[in-house]
Design a protein around this nucleic acid. Sequence first.
DNA 1: AAAGTGATCATG
DNA 2: ATGATCACTTTG
Length: 172
Amino acid sequence: MAYRLDKTEYLLPATELAPALLGKFLCRNIEDEIIRLRITETECYYGEIDTACHAHKGKTPRTETLYRQGGCAYVYVCYGIHSMLNVVSGPEGFPEAVLIRGVQGYAGPGKLTKALHIDRSLNGENFSKSNKLWLEDDGYESSYKTAKRVGIEYAHPFDRDRLWRFILMEEK
DNA sequence: AAAGTGATCATG
DNA sequence: ATGATCACTTTG
């Protein structure tokens, strides 16, 4: 049996929530068809001090969602084509989030949002209350490896080299 | 290696 | 208003 994540779990810092989300189910209701896909890869973006984080230049209309209390979705469009899904984490007022970079069957953040019909209309969606998009835990025990984040060449070298990408290992 | 695509944000 | 930039994917 799988249970929806408790809203308190999203209050973890993104650095801890990112590995914790590996193996959890990303759930999406599309016209009463419910799709559940296990999360296989995440990255964390952590505060205004993280030069790879969208909020490192401060709050703007786009990044406002990042500043909310953990537990809602931050969705934006990248390269004009791809919607990116992030899980906002931590306390209100501190901008941090976990990018869902891959799920079972779909490698790549743009692919999974396309498969699940996730777009900006879901920006700000509350994972604890939503009947369209939420997360579930079925007790899956996972191990993972870390790596450098991708696609952030513009960031400070100090931030580029952080091992803030988390990848689910095949077996346990 | 580079195109393709469009929202976003800092300029003026 | 315009122009640069971008947590990507696909094609060659």
